[in-house]
Write a protein that binds this DNA or RNA. Structure first.
Lengths: 155, 155
DNA sequence: CAATAAAAAGTGTATATACACATATCATGG
DNA sequence: CCATGATATGTGTATATACACTTTTTATTG
């Protein structure tokens, strides 16, 4: 009897592709990021950057650490991601008032303008993906994604 | 009457955070990637790299373009992502036999060994996330992620 | 108050991602 | 057979991501 490889045979590798959480999450992220990038191109902003503007608007002047916490993102990643937006004058990052260690991120008037300009494009992207996968499925997935973040973060 | 900002007010920005597909997908990707990275650390391999080994095993000797297609990843991204694995001797990338333009990716014996070594760690990571969010929810999410990829890719 | 621990942030390095552009090879029609 | 378009890949550049390490400032404690 020819002995099959017991571990990591073809069948098993196919199963991994289908069931691996990180692979499928990253794959979906790539695809959806592409869609939003395409839609937001007229505004000259990337979806990741749009997110930073939105969060800055929501949190008001906010420290980098606090913002990273909300984004569930490494602090140093955020520091670098702020750079292009700072350069474009959409955000300002200034020394904190009370605590000289901290720096506070604020939306500039240009940043607000960009936000307003991008909003309809974001809405159109949301409409597209809703239409493509269905509202109920999308809502369910958003709910599940939040659950995954909360549960994984906690563990 | 003090006029509120009609667009991009605080309330709206909070709603964007909660409903934005790309933001929530990327956030979940970050968190889950961290978990798998942590679990796979003993094997000295990153989850993204583990995925490439799995796909190479599943597809056998395969061209870069074909592999990128399966991964739903830009071809040039794959080219770069193969580099560390090639350097480590886990994959080989050699000129194609028939078509001199193409290059074929294969798993080396070291690569197979690494795959077998990492598999139990991957399983443990899968177990962890299943336990954290529940099997039914995870299965449902994987299903939805696939649907999103298919639907978005098509549109 | 001085020493020391804790907190906030930045930098060096490495990987992941994709677009625009360039190069090499293959296929096809005259 | 050769010109031309299609195909397979690589490179330059830019952003996204996080870890290890460092620096600066604040808080704690003896």
């Amino acid at each position: 009897m020819a002995k099959q490889n017991t571990s990591c045979n073809l069948q098993q590798c196919r199963e991994i592709e289908q069931t691996c959480a990180v692979f499928n999450l990253r794959k979906a992220s790539r695809v959806v990021t592409q869609l939003y990038e395409e839609m937001m191109k007229p505004a000259g902003i990337l979806p990741t950057q749009f997110t930073l503007l939105v969060v800055t608007r929501a949190l008001g002047p906010v420290s980098i650490s606090r913002m990273a916490e909300v984004l569930v993102m490494d602090r140093t990643t955020l520091t670098r991601n702020l750079k292009p937006l700072e350069r474009e004058g959409l955000l300002s990052v200034r020394p904190g008032k009370d605590d000289k260690r901290s720096r506070e991120v604020s939306l500039t008037s240009q940043g607000l303008k960009k936000l307003e300009q991008t909003l309809p494009l974001w809405k159109e992207a949301q409409r597209r993906i809703k239409k493509a996968v269905g509202v109920s499925r999308l809502d369910r997935m958003l709910d599940d994604l939040t659950a995954v973040v909360d549960a994984t973060w906690a563990s």
